[in-house]
Write a protein that binds this DNA or RNA. Structure first.
Length: 151
DNA sequence: GCCAACGTTGGC
DNA sequence: GCCAACGTTGGC
């Protein structure tokens, strides 16, 4: 079992979108960064993912979801009408992948970025680094335990 | 909304 | 292969 953190702007997809139907499976599409894609390709079913809300009033970790389907070609890359359309991608040579995610839990409060920055166990995690743009981030077991201990 | 930091693109 | 220009991310 591996642990992850994925960033999202809550106006696009928030922990509440998972929580409102805990049985629903949401396709995590639109990742257009090679490093993030490569991390997604190493995800396994059952891996736990912290949902991080960025670019919003309450920045931080809002809850946990889990992987229900391993990486597969992101259909939005072929959709000329989608904002994530990639003209350099073809069905026999897809560039981008998606995974499927399902609700696990919503935290009683958002763990704020400031708290993450103040937690020594997270000092090496990209999420607290200034200017970091990686939207799919591996989280070690120790880091995961430290995050949950902040609740 | 601003803007620093970053990843990607493309001319050379 | 370099690197300037560009577009995007994301905290503030």
């Amino acid at each position: 079992m591996q642990y992850w953190l994925m960033k999202t702007e809550p106006e696009e997809c928030s922990i509440d979108d998972f929580a409102k139907d805990p049985s629903a499976v949401i396709m995590w599409d639109g990742v257009r960064n090679y490093q993030a894609r490569n991390f997604m390709r190493t995800m396994a079913i059952g891996d736990e993912v912290f949902i991080y809300h960025s670019r919003c009033a309450n920045i931080g970790i809002a809850g946990i979801v889990r992987v229900t389907r391993m990486a597969y070609p992101d259909p939005t890359q072929f959709d000329t009408n989608a904002p994530y359309f990639d003209p350099k991608s073809t069905p026999d040579k897809p560039r981008w992948d998606a995974v499927d995610l399902q609700f696990v839990r919503k935290f009683t409060r958002v763990i704020a970025l400031d708290e993450l920055k103040n937690e020594p166990a997270l000092a090496n995690n990209p999420v607290v680094r200034k200017g970091n743009r990686l939207s799919v981030i591996p989280v070690t077991k120790d880091e995961r335990d430290a995050i949950l201990a902040l609740l």
